[in-house]
Amino acid sequence: MIAATAVLVLLLAAALVWVRRTWLRVTVVGPSMLPTYRPDDQVLTRKVRAGRIRAGEVVVFEGPAADEEHAATLLDQFVRDYAVVERRPLAAAPPERVRRRMIKRVAAVPGERLPFDVPGHPAGSIVPAGHLAVAGDNAAASVDSRQYGFISFDQVVGRAKVS
């Protein structure tokens, strides 16, 4: 009886570890993904390799890989336009210490043509290997690849489960 209980506890612990390594729950902040996601919506995100992402899917990724000067000019916009991981709410750390995870729709993957201008790359250019072009569903309220350029595969956290 004790052995069966121990096995059950180990199986439950292993399942919990798998879930925490595979899934991430985020809270949407800002209007950039309206009408798909509203502010305060809870989004379940499955961690995946970026190479498996396709255009049209919604991804959560680490904030833009912009240089410090460029990032500083967009900081106010970033603060209103990101997804916060539940375990680390915005109020828990000063803005410079918060890892800004953003949620956007993939507009183009490597080898595809850009549907819009990206800094240094006009619409119709080819997305380079290892990068994605992303855009918010609410273009008027979104800070995305149109402002800060491509995101690299290294920045991708996972694919959002569309409900």
Results as ranks from 00 to 15, higher is better:
W18Y: 07
V19M: 07
R21H: 12
T22M: 05
W23G: 04
R25T: 14
R25Y: 13
V26Q: 00
G30H: 11
P31T: 05
S32W: 03
M33C: 02
M33S: 03
T36S: 07
T36G: 00
Y37W: 12
Y37K: 01
Y37E: 06
Y37Q: 04
R38D: 07
P39Q: 04
D40R: 14
D40I: 04
D41G: 08
Q42V: 14
V43M: 07
L44C: 05
T45V: 15
K47C: 10
K47F: 03
V48F: 08
R49F: 01
G51N: 09
G51L: 03
G51Y: 06
R54G: 03
R54N: 10
A55K: 13
A55Q: 12
E57S: 06
E57M: 05
V59K: 06
V60L: 00
E62F: 07
A66M: 04
D67W: 01
D67H: 01
E68C: 01
E69M: 05
H70N: 09
A71D: 08
T73E: 10
L75M: 15
D76L: 13
Q77C: 01
R80E: 15
R80G: 15
R80T: 15
D81F: 12
Y82H: 15
Y82L: 14
E86T: 11
E86R: 11
R88Y: 13
R88A: 12
P89L: 05
P89E: 07
A92T: 09
A92S: 15
A93N: 11
A93Y: 13
P94H: 07
P94K: 10
P95V: 10
E96V: 09
V98R: 14
R99V: 11
R100M: 09
R101T: 12
M102C: 03
M102V: 08
I103K: 00
I103C: 02
I103L: 05
K104M: 00
K104Q: 00
V106A: 07
V106W: 05
A108W: 06
V109N: 03
V109R: 10
P110S: 06
G111L: 08
E112P: 02
R113F: 02
F116P: 06
